[in-house]
Design a protein around this nucleic acid. Structure first.
Lengths: 226, 226
DNA sequence: GCCGCAGACAATGCATACAATATCGTCCAC
DNA sequence: GTGGACGATATTGTATGCATTGTCTGCGGC
């Protein structure tokens, strides 16, 4: 139909209000404006964002399942918060999982697969925009999953509790550099068909990411001493 | 008062309609009544369950985040489905994660912790009711997490994409036996302070559970050849 | 015959309104 | 003065209805 006045960049996929609200809350948590234990009132958020409570509720439910909030029936939603240990464990687990995936990639990837992965890595290196970088990175992750593992459950396991969200690189200054270096090492290992090296590359990268996240979040006060 | 004659056992915690709807849908998927790709219409479900569309929507959002459904804005929700590989990978990853947790338990558990774990294991052995068994099992898992790891992220990572839900043992005949045997082996390892043995016990148990789940789901037609 | 577009229909997205539940202060009995 | 029950208030939970968006069908142009 005729174009709406919406002069937003309007990406391919329009986001629902719920998703925008969820995004907003994630940012509040990552930026430290919402601290652990703090209660979120549906009506306040709704008014603040100019929507009704329905999309707010839907966002809260999604964030509860993603681990950002604790949402108990009739008792409201509270910020789950991040402790230093949480972050360490999170990245240790991610390291385990991606290490396993990396091994699988070495074992099963065809030349064509490798080509696709290389192309994505090059694209990441090329782009200047952080959001685009994050999106490409996500595509890379999906490609790795596609090559190496069953799509659905692995995706659920990895993507769901995503600390590394689209905004991730905004909040963690050295995140991009680490990521690129790790990906490069991983690709080298794949081309040399060395499962051990691929595994190690992933684990190392994720350990460094964990340290960087911890540093960034500690500096900004997002993680307290628990 | 409530018109619904639902005289459910009504446990301690009253569940919201949303959660009941979610539970219902999970069962439909696990039992094979809903197959991969099938579309869920909000209004149909609402009418079928005697609620409005709001709790149905909320359930769909939760299940999307848990990985059971693919929910796209304005395009409805589709059953994500289970492939054989999904299940294998899921349990392999669970094995990795719980193996790590098991190591931590050996390293950090106090005598008191061990006593609590033993008590829970005994309770699991004692109970006849499958639901109670599952609940106790979940308490055990939570206890392990409490002892061994940071609570929040680990819980989010483990609990969220729960194939092993409360009904799990209904659908997988040998599930309970495997679980008990694995727990017993794990506890022996903990008492002997052997991290390797604890790790192995967990991985072995989960590998067996994976095989059992696959067999059960294949038999019932829940997993197709993809 | 095939493609593109307009309109009708179907399904979802969200706002408003009301019901159910928790929380907290107050009062009363002891 | 303390503990517990009761009620007022705040907050969440769900139903209903309208707005928006996607999908399908049939028509006209190429």
């Amino acid at each position: 139909m005729s174009t709406h006045g919406r002069t937003l960049p309007r990406r391919l996929k329009r986001e629902s209000s719920s998703e925008q609200v969820a995004e907003h809350i994630r940012r509040l948590i990552m930026s430290g404006e919402l601290v652990k234990g703090e209660r979120l009132r549906q009506e306040d958020l709704a008014e603040e964002l100019g929507v009704s409570r329905i999309p707010v509720r839907e966002a809260i439910i999604a964030l509860d399942r993603e681990g950002w909030l604790d949402f108990e029936a009739n008792r409201g939603a509270h910020v789950a918060g991040l402790a230093a240990d949480d972050i360490g464990d999170h990245y240790e687990l991610r390291g385990l999982v991606f290490g396993l995936l990396a091994r699988r990639v070495v074992e099963t990837a065809t030349d064509e697969d490798v080509k696709v992965l290389s192309a994505l890595a090059a694209e990441m290196k090329r782009t200047a925009d952080l959001v685009e970088f994050a999106v490409t990175n996500e595509r890379m992750i999906r490609q790795i999953i596609r090559v190496a593992a069953s799509p659905r459950l692995t995706a659920a396991l990895l993507v769901t509790p995503a600390i590394m969200h689209h905004d991730f690189y905004e909040f963690v200054p050295t995140g991009r550099k680490n990521q690129e270096a790790g990906i490069a090492a991983f690709l080298r290992a794949v081309k040399q068909r060395s499962a051990d090296a691929a595994d190690t590359a992933m684990r190392t990268m994720l350990r460094r990411q964990g340290q960087a996240v911890l540093a960034a979040f500690t500096a900004s006060g997002v993680v307290g001493g628990q």
